[in-house]
């Protein structure tokens, strides 16, 4: 393994270690959308946005472009909502579900040495 790959592997491990917590925040918004699509939910949207933004910013460089792209799409919808645009909550719910699924895939694809679960 060259130095770049070795360095990225260490960062990937840290990224993976953060995923459960980030997934929990995103899932909380997804659950709220499912329970009551009309409820006021700006605080949980903001929390989800911060976590989606962070995932979108680094996932691509670490080799998880699908997760990065989907996180970006979900974040874009939340940003549009915060800017006053009408958004389709069902679409946001679906994107959040896909992000969570991709987080699961990424987490499970990493060897235990990279998720810290060993």
């Amino acid at each position: 393994m060259n130095t770049l790959q070795a360095g990225l592997s260490v960062v990937r491990k840290r990224f993976a270690a953060c995923l459960p917590e980030r997934a929990a925040v995103i899932d909380s918004l997804r659950q709220e959308l499912e329970d009551d699509p009309d409820a006021y939910r700006f605080p949980s949207m903001n929390a989800a946005k911060i976590n989606l933004h962070r995932i979108a910013g680094t996932a691509g460089t670490l080799g998880f472009s699908n997760l990065g792209d989907m996180s970006r799409q979900a974040e874009d919808l939340i940003v549009a909502y915060a800017d006053g645009a009408q958004i389709n909550f069902a679409e946001l719910h679906e994107k959040l579900q896909r992000v969570l699924k991709l987080i699961d895939q990424v987490y499970n694809s990493l060897p235990d040495t990279e998720t810290g679960a060993a």
């Binding site: 770049l4 360095g7 990225l8 260490v10 960062v11 840290r14 962070r54 910013g57 680094t58 670490l62």
Partner: peptide
């Protein structure tokens, strides 16, 4: 984001 900083460092 600490991960982003780590990535930049690498």
């Amino acid at each position: 984001d600490p991960i982003s900083l780590d990535l930049l460092e690498v």
